[in-house]
Simulated scan of single mutants.
Amino acid sequence: MARSSTSQTEAERRKRSKEVYERAISAVDHNSGNKQPPLASKPSVVGTLNRAGFGLEEIHRAFTAARRNGDLFQTKDDEGRTWIGINDRWKLREKIESNLSRVDDPREEVIGLANDRVQKLRLQGEDDE
């Protein structure tokens, strides 16, 4: 009996981890592009997820897993700010273009970081469909 209760707890833990993982990717996607820079400010996304009821440790685990799985990437600008983005060449290009078309004074450094990632993904042959 203790075993099934342990399995249920493990199943619940996995379900919660999956939920945080999916919400983290969604939060990054929704907090980048259009009038926002093509990459999301990591502290801003962490704050959003934390206010939604997720713990800081589980948020950071989700980001680590998403980077390891190739769904997200993380970078820093020249001032040491951490940015996180969708690790898909085509989505990044779309976010860059939408930001440039909707903002009078785009954050050129962040656009440069996103363009660097697009170039790296292109050279790696990622998403070449």
Rank of each mutant, 00 (worst) to 15 (best):
V20S: 01
S32F: 03
H30T: 09
N69S: 11
R67H: 10
Q36L: 13
A2W: 13
T64F: 12
S41K: 12
N69W: 09
I25R: 06
H60Q: 14
E79Q: 13
H60Y: 14
S32Y: 06
E12Q: 10
A24Q: 05
T64M: 02
T6F: 06
R16H: 11
G55M: 05
I84T: 13
G33R: 06
H60F: 05
H30D: 12
R14V: 03
L72I: 05
K18A: 06
G55R: 05
N69C: 03
V20W: 04
A66E: 05
S7E: 15
F73I: 02
V28F: 02
R61L: 10
M1L: 10
I59Y: 04
S5F: 15
T9A: 12
T75F: 02
N69I: 00
G53R: 01
I86R: 05
D71C: 04
R3Y: 05
F73L: 04
Y21C: 03
S44H: 14
W83T: 02
E79Y: 08
D71L: 10
A2P: 01
R81P: 00
V45R: 02
T9P: 05
R68A: 09
S26N: 12
F54H: 14
R23G: 01
S7K: 12
N34I: 09
G70C: 10
V45E: 01
S44N: 09
K42D: 00
R14I: 02
V20G: 01
K35A: 06
S17G: 04
T9M: 12
D78K: 13
S5I: 08
L56C: 01
T82E: 09
S26Y: 07
S17F: 08
E58G: 01
I59A: 04
G80R: 07
Y21A: 03
R16K: 13
G53S: 06
R14K: 14
N69Y: 13
A66Q: 06
E58D: 15
A62V: 08
F54G: 02
N50L: 07
T48V: 07
R68S: 11
R16S: 06
T75D: 04
R14C: 00
G53I: 14
S7A: 12
E79V: 02
R16Q: 11
R81S: 06
R67G: 01
E57L: 09
K35M: 11
E19L: 13
R3D: 09
L72C: 04
S44W: 13
F73G: 01
D71R: 14
S7P: 00
S26H: 03
N50M: 08
T82G: 02
H60W: 08
D77G: 11
R3W: 08
A2E: 15
N50F: 08
A24Y: 08
T48G: 00
H30G: 09
N50Y: 06
R67W: 02
T64G: 03
E22T: 07
P38H: 07
V45Q: 01
S32L: 08
L56I: 15
P38Y: 09
G85M: 10
A52L: 11
K15Q: 13
G33F: 05
V20M: 04
S26L: 13
P37M: 14
